[in-house]
Design a binder for these strands. Structure first.
Ligand SMILES: [Zn+2]
Length: 222
DNA sequence: TGTGCCGGGGC
DNA sequence: GCCCCGGCACA
Protein backbone atom coordinates (compact mmCIF):
# COMPACT_ATOMS: atom_id res chain seq x y z
CA UNK A 1 0.00 0.00 0.00
CA UNK A 2 3.01 2.21 0.26
CA UNK A 3 3.30 2.24 -3.45
CA UNK A 4 -0.22 3.35 -3.66
CA UNK A 5 0.47 6.15 -1.26
CA UNK A 6 3.41 7.27 -3.27
CA UNK A 7 1.30 7.26 -6.37
CA UNK A 8 -1.36 9.13 -4.53
CA UNK A 9 1.14 11.67 -3.36
CA UNK A 10 2.29 12.15 -6.88
CA UNK A 11 -1.25 12.59 -7.93
CA UNK A 12 -1.86 15.04 -5.17
CA UNK A 13 1.14 17.02 -6.23
CA UNK A 14 0.00 16.89 -9.80
CA UNK A 15 -3.46 18.02 -8.83
CA UNK A 16 -2.08 20.91 -6.88
CA UNK A 17 0.10 21.85 -9.75
CA UNK A 18 -2.87 21.61 -11.99
CA UNK A 19 -4.90 23.84 -9.79
CA UNK A 20 -2.04 26.24 -9.65
CA UNK A 21 -1.19 26.13 -13.26
CA UNK A 22 -3.64 28.87 -13.83
CA UNK A 23 -2.97 31.22 -16.63
CA UNK A 24 -1.71 34.73 -16.15
CA UNK A 25 -5.33 35.72 -16.29
CA UNK A 26 -5.71 34.27 -12.86
CA UNK A 27 -5.77 36.92 -10.18
CA UNK A 28 -2.56 35.78 -8.61
CA UNK A 29 -0.72 36.65 -11.70
CA UNK A 30 -1.86 40.17 -12.07
CA UNK A 31 0.93 42.62 -12.48
CA UNK A 32 -0.53 44.58 -9.61
CA UNK A 33 0.32 42.06 -6.96
CA UNK A 34 3.76 41.81 -8.30
CA UNK A 35 3.87 38.27 -9.49
CA UNK A 36 5.29 39.39 -12.72
CA UNK A 37 8.87 40.27 -12.13
CA UNK A 38 9.18 43.94 -11.56
CA UNK A 39 11.88 43.98 -14.16
CA UNK A 40 9.19 43.37 -16.66
CA UNK A 41 8.31 46.70 -18.16
CA UNK A 42 4.72 47.75 -18.40
CA UNK A 43 5.06 47.42 -22.08
CA UNK A 44 4.94 43.71 -21.68
CA UNK A 45 1.78 43.64 -19.68
CA UNK A 46 0.15 46.18 -21.84
CA UNK A 47 1.09 44.54 -25.06
CA UNK A 48 -0.19 41.20 -23.88
CA UNK A 49 -3.47 42.67 -22.79
CA UNK A 50 -4.11 44.87 -25.74
CA UNK A 51 -2.46 43.05 -28.54
CA UNK A 52 -0.66 45.11 -31.03
CA UNK A 53 -2.98 45.30 -33.93
CA UNK A 54 -0.81 46.94 -36.44
CA UNK A 55 1.71 44.64 -37.87
CA UNK A 56 4.99 45.86 -38.98
CA UNK A 57 8.25 45.80 -37.17
CA UNK A 58 7.76 45.90 -33.47
CA UNK A 59 8.81 49.38 -32.63
CA UNK A 60 10.43 49.62 -29.29
CA UNK A 61 11.04 52.86 -27.59
CA UNK A 62 14.69 53.73 -27.34
CA UNK A 63 15.38 50.78 -29.52
CA UNK A 64 15.21 48.32 -26.72
CA UNK A 65 12.87 45.43 -27.29
CA UNK A 66 10.59 44.57 -24.43
CA UNK A 67 12.99 43.67 -21.71
CA UNK A 68 14.80 46.85 -21.09
CA UNK A 69 18.11 46.36 -19.44
CA UNK A 70 21.75 46.74 -20.13
CA UNK A 71 23.06 45.90 -23.51
CA UNK A 72 23.40 42.36 -24.63
CA UNK A 73 24.63 40.84 -27.86
CA UNK A 74 21.35 39.11 -28.35
CA UNK A 75 18.01 39.13 -26.67
CA UNK A 76 17.55 35.45 -27.09
CA UNK A 77 18.38 34.61 -23.53
CA UNK A 78 15.90 37.18 -22.35
CA UNK A 79 13.28 35.66 -24.52
CA UNK A 80 13.88 32.41 -22.74
CA UNK A 81 12.56 33.95 -19.58
CA UNK A 82 9.33 32.43 -18.39
CA UNK A 83 8.45 34.98 -15.85
CA UNK A 84 5.69 34.04 -13.46
CA UNK A 85 6.37 30.40 -12.91
CA UNK A 86 10.06 30.81 -12.40
CA UNK A 87 9.47 33.02 -9.45
CA UNK A 88 10.99 31.47 -6.35
CA UNK A 89 8.08 32.80 -4.38
CA UNK A 90 5.79 30.91 -6.66
CA UNK A 91 7.73 27.72 -6.19
CA UNK A 92 7.74 28.16 -2.48
CA UNK A 93 4.05 28.71 -2.57
CA UNK A 94 3.54 25.48 -4.47
CA UNK A 95 5.70 23.49 -2.11
CA UNK A 96 3.85 24.83 0.88
CA UNK A 97 0.57 24.06 -0.76
CA UNK A 98 1.57 20.50 -1.49
CA UNK A 99 2.82 19.90 2.01
CA UNK A 100 -0.39 21.29 3.40
CA UNK A 101 -2.41 19.04 1.21
CA UNK A 102 -0.39 16.03 2.17
CA UNK A 103 -0.85 16.75 5.82
CA UNK A 104 -4.56 16.97 5.46
CA UNK A 105 -4.48 13.86 3.33
CA UNK A 106 -2.67 11.85 5.95
CA UNK A 107 -5.06 13.09 8.58
CA UNK A 108 -8.11 11.84 6.81
CA UNK A 109 -7.12 8.25 6.78
CA UNK A 110 -10.63 7.00 7.20
CA UNK A 111 -11.67 4.38 4.66
CA UNK A 112 -14.53 6.54 3.61
CA UNK A 113 -12.30 9.40 2.68
CA UNK A 114 -9.95 7.04 0.98
CA UNK A 115 -12.76 5.53 -0.99
CA UNK A 116 -13.85 8.93 -2.04
CA UNK A 117 -10.44 9.76 -3.27
CA UNK A 118 -10.22 6.55 -5.19
CA UNK A 119 -13.60 7.10 -6.67
CA UNK A 120 -12.60 10.55 -7.65
CA UNK A 121 -9.43 9.28 -9.22
CA UNK A 122 -11.19 6.64 -11.19
CA UNK A 123 -14.32 8.39 -12.21
CA UNK A 124 -12.47 11.53 -12.94
CA UNK A 125 -9.34 10.62 -14.86
CA UNK A 126 -6.82 13.12 -13.77
CA UNK A 127 -6.78 15.60 -16.50
CA UNK A 128 -3.51 17.28 -15.98
CA UNK A 129 -3.23 19.93 -18.58
CA UNK A 130 -0.28 18.99 -20.61
CA UNK A 131 0.77 22.58 -20.23
CA UNK A 132 1.40 22.19 -16.57
CA UNK A 133 3.07 18.88 -17.07
CA UNK A 134 5.39 20.05 -19.70
CA UNK A 135 6.00 23.26 -17.97
CA UNK A 136 7.09 21.41 -14.93
CA UNK A 137 9.15 18.94 -16.73
CA UNK A 138 10.91 21.87 -18.18
CA UNK A 139 11.34 23.26 -14.71
CA UNK A 140 12.45 20.82 -12.06
CA UNK A 141 10.29 21.49 -9.07
CA UNK A 142 11.95 18.99 -6.79
CA UNK A 143 9.00 18.52 -4.56
CA UNK A 144 10.01 16.48 -1.61
CA UNK A 145 7.02 14.25 -2.04
CA UNK A 146 7.31 13.78 -5.73
CA UNK A 147 9.58 11.13 -7.09
CA UNK A 148 9.09 12.49 -10.53
CA UNK A 149 12.23 14.28 -11.43
CA UNK A 150 12.57 16.57 -14.36
CA UNK A 151 15.02 14.19 -15.84
CA UNK A 152 12.69 11.28 -15.50
CA UNK A 153 9.96 13.23 -17.10
CA UNK A 154 12.19 14.24 -19.90
CA UNK A 155 13.48 10.75 -20.49
CA UNK A 156 10.02 9.34 -20.31
CA UNK A 157 8.66 11.90 -22.67
CA UNK A 158 8.99 9.80 -25.75
CA UNK A 159 7.75 6.71 -24.03
CA UNK A 160 4.80 8.52 -22.56
CA UNK A 161 3.93 9.94 -25.90
CA UNK A 162 4.22 6.57 -27.54
CA UNK A 163 1.86 5.17 -24.97
CA UNK A 164 -0.34 8.12 -25.46
CA UNK A 165 -2.14 8.73 -22.25
CA UNK A 166 -0.90 7.41 -19.01
CA UNK A 167 -1.49 10.15 -16.51
CA UNK A 168 0.01 10.85 -13.19
CA UNK A 169 3.06 8.75 -13.83
CA UNK A 170 1.23 5.60 -12.96
CA UNK A 171 -0.87 3.17 -14.83
CA UNK A 172 -2.45 1.75 -11.73
CA UNK A 173 -5.64 3.57 -12.45
CA UNK A 174 -6.39 2.07 -15.75
CA UNK A 175 -9.99 2.58 -16.60
CA UNK A 176 -12.10 1.08 -19.32
CA UNK A 177 -13.24 4.54 -20.26
CA UNK A 178 -10.87 6.23 -22.56
CA UNK A 179 -8.63 8.75 -20.99
CA UNK A 180 -7.95 12.03 -22.58
CA UNK A 181 -5.99 11.49 -25.73
CA UNK A 182 -4.01 14.61 -25.11
CA UNK A 183 -0.39 13.76 -24.98
CA UNK A 184 0.95 14.41 -21.50
CA UNK A 185 4.26 15.58 -22.78
CA UNK A 186 3.02 18.16 -25.17
CA UNK A 187 1.45 21.36 -24.11
CA UNK A 188 -2.03 22.01 -25.32
CA UNK A 189 -2.57 24.92 -27.60
CA UNK A 190 -3.31 27.97 -25.57
CA UNK A 191 -5.85 30.45 -26.76
CA UNK A 192 -3.46 33.33 -26.67
CA UNK A 193 -2.20 34.53 -29.98
CA UNK A 194 1.45 34.06 -30.45
CA UNK A 195 3.91 36.14 -32.37
CA UNK A 196 3.37 34.25 -35.57
CA UNK A 197 -0.32 34.97 -35.63
CA UNK A 198 0.19 38.38 -34.16
CA UNK A 199 2.63 39.81 -36.61
CA UNK A 200 2.26 37.39 -39.45
CA UNK A 201 4.81 35.60 -41.50
CA UNK A 202 5.73 38.84 -43.19
CA UNK A 203 6.97 40.38 -39.99
CA UNK A 204 8.98 37.52 -38.74
CA UNK A 205 11.50 40.01 -37.47
CA UNK A 206 8.98 41.13 -34.92
CA UNK A 207 8.55 37.67 -33.48
CA UNK A 208 10.19 36.76 -30.28
CA UNK A 209 13.25 34.66 -30.68
CA UNK A 210 11.54 31.56 -29.50
CA UNK A 211 8.88 31.90 -32.14
CA UNK A 212 11.52 32.48 -34.74
CA UNK A 213 13.12 29.27 -33.67
CA UNK A 214 9.81 27.47 -33.61
CA UNK A 215 10.06 27.08 -29.88
CA UNK A 216 7.53 27.87 -27.21
CA UNK A 217 6.67 31.54 -27.43
CA UNK A 218 8.15 33.56 -24.66
CA UNK A 219 6.42 36.82 -25.35
CA UNK A 220 2.82 35.74 -25.16
CA UNK A 221 2.84 33.14 -22.47
CA UNK A 222 -0.33 31.20 -21.85
C1' DT B 1 -5.33 23.74 -42.85
C1' DG B 2 -2.81 26.99 -40.08
C1' DT B 3 -0.58 27.34 -35.72
C1' DG B 4 2.45 26.14 -31.88
C1' DC B 5 6.41 23.87 -30.60
C1' DC B 6 9.31 19.48 -29.71
C1' DG B 7 13.21 17.33 -31.11
C1' DG B 8 17.10 17.26 -33.65
C1' DG B 9 20.80 19.01 -36.20
C1' DG B 10 24.16 22.47 -38.25
C1' DC B 11 27.31 26.05 -37.02
C1' DG C 1 25.18 28.92 -27.17
C1' DC C 2 22.60 30.52 -31.52
C1' DC C 3 19.86 29.42 -35.24
C1' DC C 4 16.98 26.73 -38.41
C1' DC C 5 13.56 23.42 -39.72
C1' DG C 6 11.08 18.68 -40.15
C1' DG C 7 7.35 16.98 -38.49
C1' DC C 8 3.79 16.25 -35.25
C1' DA C 9 -0.40 17.48 -32.45
C1' DC C 10 -3.92 20.35 -31.93
C1' DA C 11 -7.71 23.77 -32.89
ZN1 LIG D 1 6.63 34.56 -29.57
Amino acid sequence: MDECNVAMDDCMAAMVLMSLSCSPKSPIFTPENGFLPSSLPHKFAISSQSPIQSPGPLVETDGVPFFASSSAPTWSHLDMVRPPHEDPEYRKYIVEKVELLQQSHHQQHSPAAKGDTQKCLISNPINIPSTSLTQHYARPLNLSSSKITANNNYNNAKYMRSIGNSKCGTTLLQSPTKLSSVSPTRRTRGETKKCRKMYGMDNRDSWCTQCKWKKACSRFVD
